[in-house]
């Protein structure tokens, strides 16, 4: 039996964007299902059981965040939300409500396909229930099992919290993580608003694992939203 290509549900009300997403994703071999309202999207999601949802936050009928919440009531299917610049708050709400990543309009095809690949890869890893023990990108290498970090072959010493932060980002490599999500992973629940801890530790971590900490190549800032570890090579 031929392997089925992943199915992507696109919930988008603007015809030009619909067309762009259909053509681009179709060219890459994905099966594309389309919905132009939130309600229609929720019905398609329940019936067609897609592998991924691309969801515009500005839908005519229901708020995209609400669509995310209602999907999360019954499924862990990956969701990539699409919204305009300057709407950082909406993105954070959608991400904290369970969306996996976001795209800022207008976005290029490279960005779109990179996000899609990353969330589908995480889905595959989650199904196998074993993460990849070694993260490699450029001259940075992190062995999670052995708790070893090297930069250009040189060992790097991380404090316990720095390592936890690094590990949380590696587990979600390529995906954005909100401040709240990272704070919970490293410092536990109840630390959702102490973002200054995160900033100080992130700065320290960059000093240790970035060649030029002022212009990071691995630990990327998503201002107003959170951080993203660039996807491995």
């Amino acid at each position: 039996m031929a392997e089925l290509k992943p199915t992507i549900l696109v919930i988008e009300d603007e015809p030009p964007l619909q067309k762009f997403l259909r053509l681009t994703l179709g060219t890459q071999g994905y099966q594309v299902i389309e919905a132009s309202t939130g309600e229609q999207g929720l019905r398609h999601a329940a019936m067609a059981r897609p592998d991924l949802v691309v969801l515009d936050l500005g839908l005519p009928d229901i708020d995209g965040v609400e669509v995310t919440r209602r999907l999360r009531e019954w499924t862990a299917i990956p969701i990539i939300v699409v919204s305009a610049r300057g709407k950082e708050h909406d993105k954070v709400v959608a991400l904290d409500a369970g969306a996996d990543d976001y795209l800022t309009k207008p976005f290029g095809v490279g960005e779109l396909l990179a996000r899609v690949r990353v969330v589908l890869r995480h889905l595959a890893v989650a199904n196998r229930e074993t993460g990849e023990p070694v993260f490699e990108r450029g001259s940075l290498r992190v062995d999670l099992a052995r708790r070893e970090v090297t930069l250009a072959g040189q060992p790097v010493h991380l404090t316990p919290n720095e390592f936890k932060l690094m590990a949380a980002l590696i587990k979600n490599a390529g995906k954005v993580m909100t401040h709240r999500q990272l704070l919970r992973e490293v410092w536990g629940p109840g630390s959702g608003d102490e973002t200054h801890y995160l900033r100080v530790y992130m700065n320290q971590l960059r000093q240790k694992v970035e060649t030029d900490p002022a212009r990071p190549q691995h630990l990327m800032t998503e201002t107003g939203v959170g951080y993203r570890l660039a996807a491995p090579d």
């Binding site: 992130m202 700065n203 002022a214 800032t221």
Partner: peptide, 15 residues
Amino acid sequence: PDWVSLQELIGSALH
């Protein structure tokens, strides 16, 4: 306003 790192904002702007 929030406590943020100016260095981080510069890095992100350059990116």
